[in-house]
Design a protein around this nucleic acid. Structure first.
Lengths: 221, 221
DNA sequence: AAGTATTTTACGGGAAACCGTAATTGGGAG
DNA sequence: CTCCCAATTACGGTTTCCCGTAAAATACTT
């Protein structure tokens, strides 16, 4: 069993339950952080003391409050921790169910397990931890389809910037000027229009409004 | 202290933490339901047995799964329970922070307390329960401003239907036909355009796309 | 270096959105 | 019943979006 585990999770109620779960599994040392910044500090400290963590259980979204933070999301936290401790095992424990996001986590951030918060997530979390011990990866059964998602391959950063600006009220007319100003290419009105058309086609949207509604629901923007 | 409390909450991790909290407070009988349908059944049963619940702690959103449900949201559940047991005390425990939604809960559904899930929500939940015992209402400190929200008064159901259809890709052109078909009035293209213009003005949106992005973020649609 | 393919840009016509104004309706007040 | 006010509808002009075609630029091959 893992000896030293950090829980990165803002909600106190969930922290309580996860901590209890780890205790039940026989984890000796359990720490938790309600802010990503605290989590990275604890990781650094543990490395310095030559007593590194051997598992991170992290949420993805952390609500903002009065406190200024440098790391705001679980994605950033995972990346930062991987940099200082590349061999760390990571389980993401989140409500997020957008295929695009989950697939990216496995492909880019190289996480080892994904447990979706839900009606039976605590028992899933236990299974995930045991699966990781055998060197395998885990994903909540209801999300296995997420790994087959192809959105990530088809939609690139350009598309996402474009969609974001659209959602922020930038008209197509203004987009050309804006993109030139931001040094984003291609930036001609024509290409931008074509790209939007491609996205509408891809997401089967009737018009731009519909497109933004869909991509917002999918969590792409 | 309350004697018999029901927790309506789909996430097992949060259920565990809330149950523990209630135990700490000395609540004698604690039951929980992961589906709204189960919650209403338990309430009916308790009434029949002349041992009614005296407090409901409910979430707002319940994720869908394979099971068919008749009551899908916390809002509906609260309304249904109020009908069979109007004097029940209710605390909503949710991540929701949209002023529009919270204000409606206090004004329309007559809830007694609102605790926002967060970094210190368990201690807030304890305070909320104690506050209710003195016959007062409770709201998480970071949300007190929500009760001053005026969106609810300005935006009516007509606006919300209109916005929803827009988000679903219905063009203004088609909206007139659709509204006539659905017996929604007013339904002239002109009035619909005016209403959309009013909404854009109200939400300071540059265009319809922006409007949908904003209202989606606010949780109005 | 020339040829080919792909991407980007330019342009234009038709459709829809946008926005102001004016006509019409319908529900109280007197 | 008539007047008045507000809400709804009708209409027209301007702008923006939408979408196709064609030209230009860039990348890729041989």
């Amino acid at each position: 069993m893992y000896k030293k585990v950090l829980i990165a999770e803002d909600f106190d109620s969930i922290n309580i339950a996860v901590e209890q779960t780890l205790k039940d599994l026989g984890v000796q040392e359990i720490q938790y952080a309600k802010y990503c910044d605290d989590a990275i500090l604890k990781f650094k400290k543990a490395l310095q003391d030559h007593q590194p963590f051997d598992l991170l259980i992290s949420d993805l979204s952390f609500v903002e409050d009065y406190r200024e933070v440098t790391i705001a999301s679980g994605e950033e936290l995972i990346q930062a921790i991987k940099e200082i401790q590349p061999t760390i095992n990571i389980i993401v424990y989140s409500v997020e169910d957008k295929p695009y996001i989950i697939k990216t986590l496995f492909d880019e951030a190289q996480i080892n397990g994904y447990v979706k918060k839900g009606r039976n997530s605590i028992s899933q979390l236990k299974t995930a931890i045991e699966t990781l011990l055998y060197g395998k990866t885990f994903i909540s059964p209801e999300l296995t389809h997420a790994l087959q998602d192809k959105t990530g391959k088809e939609i690139d950063n350009y598309d996402i910037t474009l969609l974001s600006h659209l959602a922020n009220g930038v008209a197509i007319e203004e987009m050309e000027t804006l993109f030139k100003h931001l040094n984003i290419t291609p930036n001609s009105k024509s290409t931008i229009e074509k790209r939007v058309a491609k996205l509408k086609d891809y997401f089967k949207a009737n018009n731009n409004i519909h497109l933004i509604a869909i991509t917002k629901d999918l969590g792409i923007i």
